[in-house]
Design a protein around this nucleic acid. Structure first.
Lengths: 202, 202
DNA sequence: GTGCTCTACCTACAGGCTGTAGTACAAATC
DNA sequence: GATTTGTACTACAGCCTGTAGGTAGAGCAC
């Protein structure tokens, strides 16, 4: 009855917190409405639906992560920058699993262009400035780093590392050192009996 | 009216195909019922609900992938085995996006133990037998490989590589060569001005 | 073939979520 | 105080889940 002062921004913020608690795939218009103590229909005055809600949470998460990465990278280079960059990702994902999940769902191209995604991409390339990479090699390196970090974080979040060996944090450190090693020696060369079979297609 | 001969196995198979078409997150009891031309309630005679349906699709996908990987690895070692292993993963994910997504969702521990997951894990370690890794190093290597491949495949599926540089397949080859290089030189060592800052915690 | 049993599949329904239409009431402006 | 604006409401239609209880076909005994 009394006005709550709902806005799309506030709903996105509530949605982000709720996603961290109950999981991004459980995030619905109804859940947000319940959380702020309002009827579901009222939310539709500010959001166009569940898809809109989730996209806004994703945008919010990208902004937050971009800010954290930006802060982490300040004044660092080489492996220090790489570690700071990677830790910013992993720390964020662990602290905010719902927002992390939100960031993984593809945005439509127009929205993606307006998001903080490009800002993050630029910082990723900035990390690689500490290494000696030119042209396409840089793209390959960006993709390798992105793949490894995202894969590790997803597997850790899914609990895939829970039932074996040393703590994930130890493997994480090894992974970062390994990536640093690779970047310093880029491009990698297959030195194998058969020559370079892997670059010949199948 | 006429009997369809529904079974849990057949429903899981239909579910797998449907997931590839409409997306794993759109896979519901209702959708499967529609697909086989039956009332939703009838499906509950064979499955305990949407969760059960999705878990069965995941198990089916794990079996399929395990068979493919097993076949791909036969008679190969070293980088050839690594490439065959990785390509089996990527090919499967590209051919069956819904089943790939199904495999990513965590199963409950009891089900996971009975799945083809352990079989796949054993084959992953088999790939590493071509390299000289002992004890914990092997675990770290398994995790790095798993992370990199899964991350790459997920990013490619999400379309993250669509708007830049060379074709993903090119980066994929580079990634595999890079991983091979790393495995041959394992453990990686940080050779940096500051010593080994990354192994000291933060 | 008649009757029995099992079970596959059905209709009907309760409850939750989405999204739309139309309404009441609070706040801001004049 | 009257008007305007917009916030939040009730009511509803539609789809999905999952349960309860009923019908009919398949296989078997005789």
């Amino acid at each position: 009855m009394a006005r709550q002062g709902l806005t799309a921004e506030r709903l996105a913020k509530v949605g982000a917190e709720l996603a961290d608690e109950i999981g991004f795939d459980q995030l619905t218009v109804s859940a947000v409405a319940r959380q702020v103590g309002v009827q579901p229909a009222s939310v539709y005055a500010h959001l166009s639906g569940t898809g809109d809600l989730r996209a806004r949470v994703a945008l919010l998460a990208l902004e937050e992560l971009a800010d954290l990465v930006s802060e982490a990278l300040a004044g660092r280079a080489g492996i220090d920058a790489l570690v700071a960059y990677a830790d910013a990702y992993r720390d964020y994902a662990r602290a905010h699993p719902g927002r992390w999940a939100a960031m993984q769902t593809p945005l439509d191209p127009a929205t993606a262009a307006r998001s903080a995604g490009p800002r993050i991409a630029a910082m990723t390339r900035a990390v690689l400035r500490g290494y000696d990479l030119a042209g396409e090699d840089q793209t390959h390196a960006v993709r390798l780093i992105g793949s490894s970090l995202r894969g590790f974080i997803d597997l850790e979040a899914a609990g895939s590392f829970d039932h074996s060996g040393p703590a994930p944090a130890v493997s994480w450190r090894h992974t970062l050192v390994a990536l640093d090693t690779l970047l310093r020696a880029w491009p990698p060369r297959a030195e194998h009996d058969h020559g370079q079979p892997t670059l010949e297609g199948r």
